[in-house]
Design a protein around this nucleic acid. Structure first.
Length: 401
DNA sequence: CTTCCACTGGAAAGACAGGTAG
DNA sequence: CTACCTGTCTTTCCAGTGGAAG
């Protein structure tokens, strides 16, 4: 039935000209990074010695999500590699997302693997199965045999469950593990408190320079979106769309990633509505869709029980909208009920406590400690940070899938 | 200052999965 | 094949914790 299939698809995209510009991991070229000029030149200054084959400073970058931290770090690293090459210095950078590679071993593995060129070094870096120290040994070998300078970007370092890798990297030179190669570490964190948790020894070596990236304001967000507006066909964006989206995004923490998401969704909504232009009213819908999508992404890959726990809290929040916190035991009761309905075994209370803590870590819920006072014990209360309706909707829909 | 209680969270341990090295 | 590696998920045990009332 090729003829009916023909009607299903639009042959020419009426809205988007170049949609990749609105994809999340799209790395804009130099001219497109907006509003971070000072930060970029500061960063450049700090890593500059690497160009002459000397040790770059270790840096720590703070800032909320979507403030351009990773973007600038990658940008500056790529530039550095380019300039160093012109000076005859072999440099490379490795990017590690610590939210994914959250153990020491995995992080070392990722670094080694992304820097290793097996053709040159004849070293194999298997995915798993080796001891941590073996991975380190191979990494040092790779570095010494291939490079003069290496930059390691550790994104979301706070997600790392161990500081050891920071220690190892920052002291590799001193400890004689490396003879030729110099390492610079760029840590990126969105939790300002992260530094307090750090080991004293790590702190002194990692935090040679610190940078704080402020959130974007509405004007900058507008410029950012403007810079990417040629993702759309000429004349498709109505003039009020970008200012409106910028205002919405600025009010909610100035997250550029969210702003661009909103813009993309607005385009998609226009597309599915068959509208020829992207109208301002689509922006509001787009924001809702961005919210549910973000949450879906957040709980993607979580275990069924992890979701039941969240569902229990959502049910409680919907039943008692006036209460703003629920005890662990209360949530556990509802959770047991949900398990019964699903025909699933219940986990222990202890385990559920840990699951709740994991959700708190991902900023899905908020926990607060209370005491009942006289012979009433102390307890923790949990509160959803997302809209309970959104939570339940997403949970129910992933349940069916 | 002590007592009381409901709950907290660290620690240890086991089962299991998925891998390397020789 | 065996020895060994890390990582995940879970349970069991138990020594705290906080703060109002006594």
């Amino acid at each position: 039935m090729p003829s009916s299939g023909d009607d299903l698809f639009t042959r020419e995209d009426p809205i988007f000209e170049n949609k990749e510009l609105l994809e999340i991991n799209h790395l804009p070229e130099e001219g497109r990074i907006v509003g971070r000029d000072d930060e970029i030149s500061d960063l450049a200054n700090a890593v500059n010695p690497a160009i002459f084959g000397q040790s770059p400073s270790n840096l720590l970058i703070y800032g909320k999500t979507g403030t351009g931290k990773s973007l600038c770090a990658k940008h500056i690293s790529a530039q550095l590699v380019r300039v160093a090459k012109e000076e005859g210095v072999t440099a490379k950078f490795a990017y590690v997302d610590c939210a994914q590679d959250n153990t020491e071993t995995q992080a070392v593995q990722t670094i080694a693997d992304s820097l290793n060129d097996p053709e040159v070094t004849t070293i194999k870096i298997p995915d798993k199965g080796l001891s941590t120290s073996t991975y380190y040994k191979r990494l040092w070998k790779v570095l010494d045999s291939q490079y003069d300078v290496v930059l390691v970007i550790l994104d979301e370092v706070d997600k790392l469950d161990d500081d050891d890798i920071l220690m190892q990297l920052s002291r590799a030179g001193e400890a004689g593990k490396l003879t030729d190669c110099k390492i610079g570490v760029i840590g990126i964190s969105n939790k300002i408190k992260y530094k307090d948790r750090m080991d004293e020894r790590v702190k002194s070596s990692l935090c040679e320079r610190e940078f704080v990236f402020p959130p974007y304001d509405a004007n900058q967000l507008r410029d950012i979106m403007q810079a990417r507006s040629d993702a759309f066909k000429n004349g498709v964006l109505e003039p009020s769309v970008i200012p409106r989206a910028a205002a919405l995004a600025a009010r909610e923490h100035g997250d550029a990633r969210k702003a661009i998401d909103i813009l993309r969704y607005a385009g998609e909504i226009a597309q599915s509505n068959g509208s020829k232009t992207v109208r301002e009213e689509f922006v509001v819908q787009a924001r809702e869709r961005a919210e549910t999508d973000r949450f879906r992404e957040l709980i993607r890959g979580s275990t069924p029980h992890s979701r039941y726990v969240l569902q229990a809290l959502a049910v409680l929040s919907l039943n008692r909208p006036d209460e703003d916190g629920f005890r662990t035991t209360k949530i556990f009761d509802v959770y047991e009920e949900i398990c019964r309905q699903e025909g699933s075994d219940t986990l222990s209370l202890r385990r559920v406590r840990d699951l709740l803590k994991e959700h708190a870590f991902l900023d899905i819920i908020e926990q607060s400690r209370h005491s009942g006072g006289s012979a009433e014990g102390s307890y923790t209360e949990h509160q959803l940070l997302e809209d309970p309706d959104v939570v339940r909707k997403v949970l129910v829909e992933t349940d069916e899938a």
